[in-house]
Design a protein around this nucleic acid. Sequence first.
DNA 1: GCCAACGTTGGC
DNA 2: GCCAACGTTGGC
Length: 137
Amino acid sequence: MNYWLVKSEPNEFSWDRLVKEKRSMWDGIRNYAARNNLRAMKEGDLVFFYHSNIGKEIVGIAKVVKEAYQDPATGGENWSVVDLSPVKPLNKNVPLNILKSDKSLSEMKIVKQSRLSVSPVTQEEWLRVLELGETNE
DNA sequence: GCCAACGTTGGC
DNA sequence: GCCAACGTTGGC
């Protein structure tokens, strides 16, 4: 079991939409580092869902329901997508400034490299964010 | 709207 | 293969 964080502008694709759709294709990744992380995802892995630009906070937990496959929007084999389903919202959203100010989260990828849209989360970080989000997994 | 950080492109 | 120029992202 691995943990991840994905980032989306709510204008483009919001947590609410994922909840509504129940299962969505996570597409549009056009960055090799993010893609490599995407391809490392395993079915059942858990994923924090972060809203960039608007909100700038982690709002919920999703899970990988289908491992990486060819992005149907592109030819060739450069780009991949996964399918995600919502698990539950956080009881309390965890904003970026809290992530930044929390000592045990100072090494989080999202904090150190804010542009990476798919990044790994360690188990320690996962548990700490759940604690900050007043949520039990 | 600005700008820092990062990725990508293309000339050499 | 290097690196300058350019484009994009996202926090502020």
